[in-house]
C-alpha cells in the first residue's frame, strides 16, 4: 500500500510521519501531484494559520489536487478545517469538500482548547463504537459545528465535530499522531478503509 503525506508548510508532518513509522507503515512525504494521485491513501496534515496556509496551497496548486482526489484522504487538525467551506480564521475561503463553516470558539473556557478530551456519538465507517469515550489530543481555537458529516463529537462548552466523513474524505480535529494508543488505532482504521469514488 502506498501512503502519501502531503508535503507543505504544516507543522506536524514529522509527527505524522513518525506515527506511521511506529506502525511500521512505509510512506512518502511529497508535493509531487503524480505521486499523490497514485497513492492508495493520502494524509493531509496541518498545524498553522488558515489564510497563510490556504495561500500556500493555492500557490502550489495543491488546493485543486486535494479536492479532486478519489482515494481515501485524511485531513488532520488545520487540514480538516481547510477541507471545510470557509474559516473565520483570517476570513478564509477553504477547499469546500465539507460544506461546513469553521468558527472561532466563543465559550467561557480557556482557548486554545488544548489537551485530552473524549469522543462521543462515534459513527462508522471511520469511528468505531469502541472509541466511544476514549480520549484524544486536541489543540485548536476554531471548531466545526456538529453536522450530518460528523463522525464523532467532543464537548468543550458546547458539542463540536471531532471527526468528519463524507465519501472518500475523512478528517479529525484532534491529532491521532499524538493521541497515544487510541490515536494509532484511528490511524490504522483510516488505512484499512477501502472506498474510492
Amino acid at each position: 500500500m502506498k501512503i502519501a503525506i502531503i508535503k507543505y508548510n504544516a507543522g506536524n508532518i514529522k509527527s505524522v510521519s513518525n506515527a506511521l513509522g511506529r506502525l511500521g507503515i512505509e510512506h512518502a512525504i511529497t508535493d509531487n501531484p503524480d505521486e499523490i494521485k497514485a497513492a492508495d491513501k493520502v494524509i493531509f496534515p496541518g498545524v498553522g494559520e488558515a489564510s497563510t496556509t490556504m495561500a500556500y496551497l493555492k500557490n502550489k496548486k495543491l488546493d485543486v489536487l486535494i479536492r479532486e482526489l478519489k482515494q481515501p484522504v485524511l485531513g488532520i487538525c488545520l487540514g480538516m478545517q481547510l477541507m471545510c467551506s470557509h474559516s473565520e480564521e483570517g476570513d478564509t475561503p477553504c477547499l469546500g469538500i465539507f460544506d461546513l463553516p469553521v468558527k472561532k470558539f466563543l465559550v467561557d473556557l480557556k482557548i486554545p482548547h488544548m489537551g485530552w478530551n473524549s469522543l462521543h456519538e462515534t459513527k462508522a465507517p471511520f469511528m468505531e463504537n469502541s472509541l466511544e469515550g476514549e480520549f484524544v489530543y486536541f489543540v485548536h481555537s476554531y471548531y466545526v459545528p456538529v453536522a450530518n458529516e460528523t463522525a464523532a463529537l467532543t464537548h468543550y462548552g458546547m458539542p463540536f465535530s471531532a471527526a468528519l466523513q463524507k465519501d472518500n474524505f475523512f478528517a479529525t480535529q484532534f491529532h491521532p499522531e499524538k493521541s497515544g494508543a487510541e490515536g494509532e488505532r484511528i490511524l490504522k482504521r483510516f488505512l484499512d478503509i477501502e472506498v474510492r469514488v
Partner: peptide, 8 residues
C-alpha cells in the same frame, strides 16, 4: 459541558 482532562 466540558470533559477536557486535567493533564499530568
Amino acid at each position: 459541558m466540558n470533559n477536557l482532562a486535567k493533564r499530568i
